[in-house]
Amino acid sequence: MNELSPLLAQLVNGLIIGSIYGLMALGLTVIFGVLKIVNFSHGEFYMLGAYASYFVSQTMGLHPVAGIFVAILATFFLGVLIEKALLTPLYENKVERKDEYALLITFGLSLFLINMALAVFGPFQKSAPALTGGTIDLGVITLSSGKVLAALIAIALLLIMLFIINKTWLGTALRAISQDRDTSAIMGINAKRLGSIAFGLGACMAGAAGALLGPVFLVYPIMGTVPAIKSFVIIVLGSMGSIKGAIYGSLLVGLVESLGVFFLSPAYRDVYSFLILILILLFKPKGLFGGAQWNN
């Protein structure tokens, strides 16, 4: 059994990181489903969430868990504001090439936020305090309590999001908009307002992921790039727009990464998820849940 414990530790680690990636990928999926745009600035909301949480716990001296909630609120409102300011021309028939507009706007926003963070926070890596100290000894493996707490919070947030999407008026309306925007207007749903809320929800999930992973990795202006690329990998391999795909895809990526680290080499950690993506798309070009809709 003892020979297996490093493997087991890696697997658990993979699931922990996977559940946090899941938050980020689900955020991307919500934005894609409702607004039909790919948010290229998703990684920067992750970065801002990490900074928000870092400052709440380091500068203000509050508990790191409080920092996570501040990060969620801050990125939600920032997301709503940015959507209102930059993306509403998409729905007022002012823009001729909507996809290109959304691509340029969100990509530009990404560069802007990175450089703003460089100017405001400086280029140096900051290490955020762990959510909680100590370890949990399971006999076979020992886990850091901070990581376990981060995963539990991520799972709780995922469940809350799934509840909102599947069981509330807001979620039903968001799913309706993602399927048929004109008909939801006929129902009296203000798709423009809910679009801003959807962007805010997507952004705050990235913000939460950043706040949760800040203590695991480090906090710096371009910290969002790799997680953002990974969430793109996740939603593509799980089928664009599928909620199920986003969640299972992130667990898969988390597991494959840690198995790769264990059996091959930790140096290529970021390569394994791309390998999986290539393999899945070779055999299932529509992704794992091909054809599945946004609400599945």
């Binding site: 039903t172 799913r175 309706a176 399927q179 048929d180 004109d182 008909t183 939801s184 207007a185 006929i186 129902m187 009296g188 749903i189 203000n190 798709a191 809709q293 946004w294 609400n295 599945n296």
Partner: peptide, 22 residues
């Protein structure tokens, strides 16, 4: 458009307009 529903006006479209995945 979304304000008209509140005023008491409905609209049956020509095309299929159920939300298929709800």
């Amino acid at each position: 458009s979304h304000k008209l529903a509140n005023l008491g006006i409905g609209f049956l479209l020509q095309r299929v307009s159920v939300f298929p995945d709800l």
